[in-house]
Each structure stands twice: as structure tokens, then as C-alpha cells.
Amino acid sequence: MSAESSEPVLLVDDAAGVRTLLLNRPAAFNSLTLELKESLLGSLRAASQDSSIRAVVISGSGDAFCAGQDLKEHVEALQRGDGSSSTTVERHYNPLIETITGMPKPVIAAVNGAAAGAGASLACAADLRIADRSARFLMAFANVGLSADSGASWTLPRLIGYGRAMEMMLLAQPVGAEEALAVGLVNRLVPDGTALGAAQELAARMATGPTASFAALKEALRLGAASSLPDALANEARLQHEAGGSADHREAVEAFVGKRPPRFTGN
């Protein structure tokens, strides 16, 4: 529980094979405290290992997705000299991004309102982003005299290109939802207030799909982004061989031959 409220800082809901993780500090725009970071990391790790969870949705309560690091807590830690503020990247942000990108199942960010700093980075690490039309993205690191973290130096250029990513980082100006869609930062725009529902609907549909294949596709793209062509081809061959031996692949072939819809199990 948060000291500021009797409500948990993270709400977790499981339904139809989908785990929804709702950042729940609306009065603070879902900014990331130590408690929230640790709760989110633990829930993501648990979802990654739980075979009954086949897709994950991350969103924020209230009017914001996530405003990034809670600067009040950050300043208090600096004043105390307890060192937690200087180690949170290694202890929390890096593991969060590694868990999301390495999770063998789809992760969808439902972006409602502002996604700033580490909050924007969190959205960028997801596999897909569905955003309300009033959503906006802000790489705010320069505004507080910091460098990029939470994987943004890796994910953002791969989503929108090096030049546009550099502009977002150096100028630290908000990018609205329409522009985010145009440059590839967002996959879909939906009416305000509906991003979470739209993300859950898509996640539920994907949860019935070939999640073993989704895992292989995520790994192939992640490795390919930083590989030479020969290495990428070798990774594709390995992953294709593994996928070809899966129960889902056999089911897909049998369903095709039998002219019926496939029934995937994620194996």
C-alpha cells in the first residue's frame, strides 16, 4: 500500500488469459515511486512465468499513463544521501524493460493522457501501443538535466528513426497522439477513454492465438535489431526450427488441411 492512500499503487486483474497492470497513483499522474516500480517489476516477472497468462496490458489510472520517475521521492532520496536514487536504473528500470521486451507473450501499452520520461520509455518497450487521441509523449530527461533511461535510447530510434528520436530527446517537447501515429510511435488511436478497453480486447484476441509463435517473433525482432545479417539469418533459422516443432504449428497445419479454425494452446 502507498503511504499516501489506502489503495494499492498497482492494480492487477486477470481475465481471459490477459493480465492487466494498472498504475494506480492518479493524483501523482502515476509517477514511479520505489513501491510502484517494485510492484510492477514483480507482477511483470510473475506474468512472464505464468502459463495461464498469454498477454499483458499496461495502463494508468486517472488522466495519465505515467509521468515517469516521482521527482519528489527522488529529491528526498538525494537529500537523505541514501543512494537509492543513483541505483534505481540498474535495480528497477533496466529489469523492467528487460522483462517486458523478453517476455514470451505480447505486451500492449494502453496510453491514456501523458506518458513522460520513464513512462514514455515504458510505453516504447511494449510490443504494441494503443493511445487515446488526447495522449501525448514527452521524453523529458533533458528538462531535469538527465540522460535517457528505461531503454529509450534503444527502443525509440527503432520505432521512429534516429533523427526524430534525437529531436524528441534534445528538445524535450511533447508529441501529440496524431503525430505519434504518423511517425510510428503509436500503432492505433482510439477515442478518449477507450484505450484500455481497446488494448484489453486486442490482448484477449491475441491470447487465443499462437503465443509460442509470438514469443519467437519477439525474439527474432529483438535480436535482429542489433545483429548483422548473417547473425539475424542464423537466429531466424533456429527460431523457425523451434517453432516448426511446436504444438501450435501442428495445430495450424491440421486446421488448414481440415478447413477449420485453429485452436491454439500456446505450446
Results as ranks from 00 to 15, higher is better:
Phe65Gln: 02
Gly60Trp: 00
Gln49Tyr: 14
Arg25Asn: 11
Asn24Cys: 11
Gln49Trp: 11
Ala28Ile: 00
Leu32Arg: 05
Ile53Ser: 09
Phe65Ile: 03
Glu76Pro: 00
Leu36Ala: 14
Val18Gly: 00
Gln79His: 13
Leu11Pro: 00
Gly60Leu: 01
Ala27Leu: 10
Glu76Cys: 05
Leu41Ala: 10
Phe65Cys: 01
Asp82Arg: 14
Gly42Ile: 07
Val12Glu: 15
Val12Asn: 09
Arg80Gln: 13
Val18Trp: 01
Ser52Ala: 15
Ile53Asp: 07
Gly62Cys: 07
Ala55Lys: 06
Asp82Thr: 08
Ile58Trp: 00
Leu10Asn: 02
Val57Glu: 02
Phe65Met: 04
Leu32His: 05
Leu34Asn: 10
Val12Gln: 15
Asp14His: 11
Gly68Asn: 05
Arg80Lys: 14
Val75Trp: 03
Ala55Phe: 01
Arg25Leu: 15
Asp13Phe: 00
Asn24Gln: 05
Gly81Ile: 06
Cys66Arg: 07
Arg25Ala: 15
Ser59Ala: 10
Leu44Trp: 12
Leu23Asp: 04
Leu21Asn: 13
Lys72Gln: 14
Gly42Asp: 12
Asp14Leu: 01
Glu73Asn: 10
Ala47Met: 10
Ala15His: 10
Ser48Met: 09
Ala46Met: 04
Val9Lys: 01
Leu23His: 08
Ser48Asp: 06
Leu21Ser: 11
Ser52Asp: 14
Leu40Gly: 03
Ser51Ala: 14
Asn24Gly: 12
Ala28Ser: 08
Ala67Leu: 08
Arg25Ile: 08
Leu10Met: 03
Leu22Glu: 10
Asp14Thr: 07
Ser52Gly: 11
Leu22Gln: 08
Leu34Gln: 12
Leu22Thr: 14
Leu71Asn: 10
Leu11His: 03
